[in-house]
Design a protein around this nucleic acid. Structure first.
Lengths: 118, 118
DNA sequence: TCCATATTTCAATAATCCTTGAATGGTTGA
DNA sequence: TCAACCATTCAAGGATTATTGAAATATGGA
């Protein structure tokens, strides 16, 4: 993830509806969600959700694919990880102290770790 | 870091000049930098840097303190770590795969680790 | 083909953000 | 106190982003 993409991604995440969308899509996994379902859960109009989905896609954080009549959106894990990484490297480049707490959280997420860090 | 703060922080990082400021302040450490020095390095006008510094302070990512005639800005490591954490927990809450690469980066940053993960 | 479904696009408006230069406010030293 | 320094605030503008509802596009089934 280069700086240009990171700037767009940060902008994409700086809006409540879009952050909500990302959360839903990460949870829904590879199956993703149709635009209509996203709109319904987020309680916004179809045209408005379309606007935000377009913005998120521009940022690379989500991807779309048509499935019959629906358009299915999925979270782009690689891009999300890339953004976290951008933030950490940008920070850690100078100061490790910022990343240490984040590493602890990451350890909690890892499937095969001792855990107990929170 | 709660969602409201995270939204503001993402917005703060979505602007080139402000991202540049964060980078400089993280590198400069606890000594921080005076507003004028930041403006000079970032090559923007005093009033413009003031605008962006204010926005960054509102996000909690930096702090200020007066030192004689200058106003010294410093990066808030805790807030930066909190933002990374917010991003990871929001992601890892559903899917660990996103955080694993980030954890590798964190391992590189940690001072007392075997490393060799990149 | 025609209709219903699912979604996007478009145009208009409102809201927010960015930039600029001039005016203002603290702080220090003569 | 006065001038110089360092920085912020303010007002005006231009640019970008968000919201809304109506119109357009694409798909699948009767």
């Amino acid at each position: 993830m280069d700086q240009r993409q990171a700037l767009i991604a940060f902008g994409a995440l700086s809006q409540e509806t879009r952050l909500h969308i990302i959360r839903m899509l990460v949870v829904s996994g590879p199956d993703g969600m149709a635009a209509g379902a996203i709109a319904e859960k987020a309680e916004v109009s179809p045209s408005n959700i379309s606007f935000h989905l377009k913005e998120l896609e521009r940022s690379g954080l989500i991807a779309q694919q048509r499935e019959s009549r629906s358009i299915i959106y999925t979270a782009n894990y690689e891009a999300l990880g890339g953004l976290i990484r951008f933030l950490m490297e940008d920070c850690c480049g100078g100061n490790p102290e910022i990343c240490a707490p984040a590493a602890a959280v990451a350890a909690c997420c890892a499937p095969a770790t001792k855990g107990e860090l929170q």
